[in-house]
Simulated assay, not measured.
Amino acid sequence: MNLETPKKFSGLVSQAHEVAAQFFRPLSRKYDQAEHAYPKELDLLAALLDGMNAGSPDAVGATSASKRSATAEEGIKNGGNLAALLGVMELCWGDVGLLLAMPRQGLGNAAIAAVANDEQLQRFRGTWAAMAITEPGCGSDSAAIRTTAVKDGDHYVLNGEKIFVTSGERADAVVVWATLDKSLGRAAIKSFVVEHGTPGMSVTRLEKKLGIKASDTAAISFVDCRVPAANLLGNPEIDVQKGFAGVMETFDNTRPLVAGMAIGVAKAALDRTRELLKDACAFDYARPLFAVSHAEATLYRLEAEWEAARLLTLKAAWLADNRQPNSKEASIAKAKAGRVANEVTLKCVELAGALGYGEDELLEKWARDSKILDIFEGTQQIQLLIVARRLLGKSSSELK
């Protein structure tokens, strides 16, 4: 097994790391303290990324995380999913909240890339899209969605409320999950692109949060909101046999990206803690664990956990690039990376003592930012449930 970064992506990784170090890090504390203020500095960076992607078959970022770009060619392919993941890992070494606030890099963009048809891909190109799934009575159980979409001529009429929508206020549009028929359960859930300014759609509040404060998190209501039928992503027909699979394809692409965010912030904490402890610890990997200090042994264990999460996440993205089923692997990566990021960042605060707890260091911020990465895009518990279903061959009704 060759575990090195593919040579074709070395430039991407290097550039992303420089952006994280020279652009994101200096802005981290500013927008952590100015919650809900839009980081205008990101506009230039987003424009540069748009320029890189213009007309390129090897686009990078959220729009490249799709199985559609994978080819059926013989041999191993390292494609858009792996490129997006490697970029996310490096950028989140800089700041998770700022990445989530990047124009046209929202999870809604990944959803469009995953399930939109060719005409929709072209029409929504350049649109910054947020993703709206969670509702007041529906969290990780996406099949329990109650927002409705009723066909009316050339439109669908949406009614319902969405909460915890990342970039919900700032984005150009929101990809909204809604049901066409509650009696048919998860099979009737479809996703719709609803552009801001559409009558009947309104942002009702912005959340105050523990972390990722540079990113706005909104609650949005839909009251008789008329959306063009052409904005329903993918196949409008309800396929009871296929069930929820069409919409869930989005998660196969986005969960490895969220795992990548966790890996990036955990690596930032490990790197900084190592720097802070360099005068007190030898960091000699040749010495057995019983012969080193507790701080050293702890850091070595955290590094091992981090490496395991990283490799699992790379595998999930690689499978998508090679058109292989990856739902189980995407959930495994998300569960492992989210848990590891929480443990690593909190333990690094502990190892650094009072220095880690104060605002002179970013360690305390990374610990706060990391918690959401174990929650959104499906909580730790729902990921473990999905993995169990896949391993045991059980349906969602058989194993709850």
Rank of each mutant, 00 (worst) to 15 (best):
I133M: 12
A262G: 15
R274T: 13
G168L: 08
N81E: 09
A282E: 14
T166R: 07
A219Y: 02
K371G: 06
D141K: 06
L392V: 02
L373Q: 08
N322M: 03
G79Q: 09
K278Y: 03
P325Q: 05
W318N: 10
S370D: 04
V349E: 13
N53D: 15
I238A: 08
A37Q: 15
T71M: 01
V349P: 01
G338H: 09
P199E: 08
L91Y: 00
A72N: 15
R68S: 10
E41H: 09
I332S: 05
F222T: 03
A280I: 08
L45D: 14
E74R: 06
G87R: 09
E18S: 13
L180D: 07
R389H: 02
N159V: 01
M102H: 02
V247K: 05
S140Y: 04
K40Q: 15
D374Y: 06
I112W: 01
A320C: 12
A143F: 12
M89Y: 04
M261H: 01
V387T: 05
E73H: 07
N322E: 07
N109P: 00
V19Q: 05
Y285D: 14
K267S: 12
A101F: 07
L42G: 13
L91D: 07
D321E: 07
V88R: 05
L184V: 01
L121F: 00
T254F: 01
E237H: 11
P26E: 14
N342F: 03
R226L: 05
A113C: 03
T148G: 04
K8T: 13
L373S: 09
T147D: 08
L276K: 12
I112G: 03
G353P: 02
E41Q: 14
K30D: 11
A47M: 08
N117F: 02
S167M: 11
A304K: 12
L98N: 12
F244R: 10
D43M: 12
Q241N: 14
D32A: 10
L312D: 14
Q381W: 06
A149Y: 01
S64K: 04
V203G: 06
V247T: 14
E119S: 15
T179R: 08
V88S: 08
A308D: 14
T134E: 15
L210N: 14
A388F: 01
L299V: 04
I386Y: 04
A187K: 02
A143E: 13
S327L: 11
R301W: 00
V344F: 01
G353N: 08
T127A: 14
A266L: 09
N109W: 01
L289V: 10
